[in-house]
Amino acid sequence: MKTFSLIIVLLFGSLLVYCTLDFPSWGDPTAPASLHVSPRYIEQTLDETSVPNIVTAVLADYRSYDTMFETIVIFTAGVACIILLRTYQRKKQLGGMYRHVPTGITLRFKEDVQLPKDSKEFEHIDLEWVPYDIIIKTACRLIVPFSQIFALYVIAHGHHSPGGGFQGGVILGASVILFAISHNLRATLGRISERAVALLCGLGVFMYAGTGLICMIFGANFLDYSALAHLLPLSPVAARSFGILIIEIGVGIAVMAVMIQLYYNLASAGKHDEGL
């Protein structure tokens, strides 16, 4: 069986490599794409949308419909992860591990205990015991805000430099994951709950599609942002640039939420109690 699958893989691999020989070579000026498609965008993008980064303009304006469904694919991945992995267990685990913060002693209870409410002295920790490390916690506490600022910059500056909603959203999600790794899943769930993450997933896609619908209300095509000029004190060209920013923010929110969602479900095997 193994040799059979190897033969199939090699056969199709060589077929694919053979087909790539028909492609125009990299940077070929006589390739069909370089003859009229690329020059059109290179010459007209700045005049039509006032966006210097042509890649962003093509992705979020000219090919906006495509990008919208890319976002929906990511949203679907988050939903599928919930459906496949999330388990709601009725029986709660008895007992648990607690750390007495002033002394650093770890306590394990075999039965349910009632700790004094709002006690700062005891901290609930995971059963798979991770040594308390002040260096890791402090370092991650320092890194997280800077990476979040950088992510916001990437989202907002996608018009002028490489970046945009996808990359910025992933960095935002990664900063939350970093927090979850350095502390624990319970602390992260206390800050960004499962419900909030699920709502943000939908909100991002809704912002994207809603912008398209607003454009339709003003009589333009779906996702033709120049119609936003009716709503805002902007010229139609500046409105296209502004519309790109709105949908980039929507994509960023959706991607961030899905990344956190995937991490929550994968790290805790769908139980949302204890993670890495």
Binding site: V170, G173, I177, M259, L262, Y263, L266, A267, L276
Partner: peptide, 8 residues
Amino acid sequence: VSTVLFVA
């Protein structure tokens, strides 16, 4: 992120 998800 995908490496982190794989490791998790």
